[in-house]
């Protein structure tokens, strides 16, 4: 069974901050990384392949430099990778992104399962996976923390909920998004690293995908960012002083005063 994993290259988000004096964005660590959740998607794909055979193909939509991220997942053992890249894809929201990725999936060919990360850490939307499933009209389960059973026709998974988990059965082909608890990703292999250097990663744009400019990028997006600003921070830090008892007493009376407790 072939598995397609969707991998996004994201900026090291934790370095992104707004300089409060100039109100401009500062970025430390300008390096692009693979969205952490997508590493679990890759690992799960590899495990399925080891069990059922077939291939694991990584798919990414992004600027030309996303090629690096795809080479990196090849080093972990992914069989092939495709980059969807075109100037027309710029400014895509999750609707346009999932439309584009779904087209990419169709062109890659036959598959039993698509695996996405739970969410991408730059936008934290968790919308692209369900969007792809909807476009392809296949069943979907979000936040999968365990695959209990998988055959060539059905899949039984545990879906993480706020208060526990649900057990679901879906028919294949299907799409799942995975959380960190699902596995422990492996290290890249030497053979994988060699392959990553030489592997041919095709780049598909609107003409290869047979999709119109109206459907992708900003034109194909329903939402639009109109403003970016610094979050307000609540209250200022106050370091409590004195003995343990004194610090605790001060804390309790402050919280009491604020009607927090």
């Amino acid at each position: 069974m072939n598995v397609i994993v969707c991998v996004k290259q994201v900026p090291e988000t934790t370095g992104v901050k707004i300089n409060k004096d100039t109100n401009t964005l500062i970025r430390e660590g300008t390096k692009g990384i693979i969205n952490p959740f997508d590493m679990y998607a890759v690992e799960e794909g590899l495990r399925i392949k080891e069990k059922l055979g077939g291939e694991v193909i990584a798919l990414s939509m992004g600027p030309p430099q996303a090629d690096e991220a795809l080479r990196e997942v090849v080093s972990y053992g992914v069989d092939g990778a495709v980059l969807l890249s075109d100037r027309a894809f710029a400014g895509a929201d999750t609707l346009a992104t999932s439309r584009t990725l779904a087209k990419g999936v169709e062109k890659v060919g036959e598959f039993g399962l698509i695996i996405c990360g739970k969410q991408a850490i730059d936008g934290d939307t968790a919308q692209v996976g369900p969007g792809i499933a909807e476009r392809l009209d296949i069943p979907y389960v979000a936040f999968v923390r365990k695959i209990r059973e998988i055959s060539n026709h059905t899949l039984v998974v545990e879906r993480m909920m706020d208060d526990g988990y649900d057990v679901l059965e879906v028919t294949l082909p299907a799409l799942i998004t995975v959380v960190k608890e699902i596995n422990e990703p492996r290290m890249p292999s030497l053979r994988g690293k060699m392959k990553a250097k030489s592997v041919d990663i095709p780049v598909w744009g609107i003409s290869e995908l047979g999709i119109s400019e109206e459907e992708v990028g900003l034109k194909g997006s329903a939402t639009q960012v109109i403003k970016i600003f610094t979050p307000q921070r609540h209250g200022n830090r106050e370091m409590l002083e004195g003995s343990v008892e004194r610090q605790v007493d001060q804390l309790v009376s402050r919280l009491d005063g604020m009607k927090i407790i």
Binding site: T13, K17, D122, D124, V225, T230, P231
Partner: peptide, 9 residues
């Protein structure tokens, strides 16, 4: 967005 470091409307 960006892990809570910035806000977007």
């Amino acid at each position: 967005a960006f892990g809570g470091n910035i806000m977007a409307t």
